[in-house]
């Protein structure tokens, strides 16, 4: 690795001592019950396997943060309504809260939502799924341990043979 070859750079204290915190602040956009439900939905979309799932990586907190800060109130309301609907559907279909449904039941419910004729329901699902994927793929755990993001590649090689196993490189 040709990192900073030929020169010593003194970085300021904040650059050497930073801690890799993920989103720490949860705004009041959802009630804590709805926040937990969002975590269960994210976990259903990307579950724990031999590596952590979305909930353990706090992806649902990232989703809340982004929806609260980057989207308009109509979208925020639609997320609240969508969460209410998921809970109602769980009661109706399985007679218990979404959180207590088994993983096959949860997946069936979300799959049904993704195919809904109702535009608002479909939009809710695709927003939550898109943000779950983004929050997961951009989490410290995934970028550090699974996709091996290099902040400082130190090179660009134009023509290299395709590696046997591709790894993603997100900017």
């Amino acid at each position: 690795m040709a990192v900073a070859a030929g020169a010593l750079i003194n970085l300021p204290a904040w650059a050497t001592n930073w801690t890799a915190e993920t989103v720490k602040h949860t705004p009041n956009f959802l009630s804590s019950g709805q926040g937990d439900l969002l975590g269960d939905i994210a976990e259903t979309i990307i579950p724990a396997t031999d590596t952590p799932g979305a909930k353990a990586l706090n992806v649902h907190q990232f989703i809340q943060k982004v929806v609260a800060d980057c989207y308009d109130s109509a979208t925020q309301n639609n997320v609240r309504n969508g969460l209410t609907l998921v809970e109602e559907q769980a009661q109706k279909s399985f007679g218990k809260p979404f959180a207590q449904a088994d993983s096959a039941q949860r997946m069936a419910l979300l799959t049904q939502l993704s195919k809904s004729d109702d535009a608002a329901q479909k939009e809710f699902y695709s927003l939550v799924k898109g943000l779950t994927v983004r929050g997961y793929m951009n989490s410290e755990y995934v970028m550090t341990n699974l996709t091996h993001y290099q902040m400082i590649p130190g090179h660009y090689y134009g023509c290299v043979p395709v590696p046997t196993k591709a790894v993603s490189q997100t900017k």
Partner: peptide, 24 residues
């Protein structure tokens, strides 16, 4: 130079909105 580049060493996951601009 350097000391006034507050985001220069931040990893993608350290940005609250992962780079996205807020609505405000």
């Amino acid at each position: 130079h350097v000391t006034d580049y507050p985001t220069t060493m931040m990893q993608p996951w350290e940005f609250e909105h992962r780079g996205q601009l807020t609505k405000e």
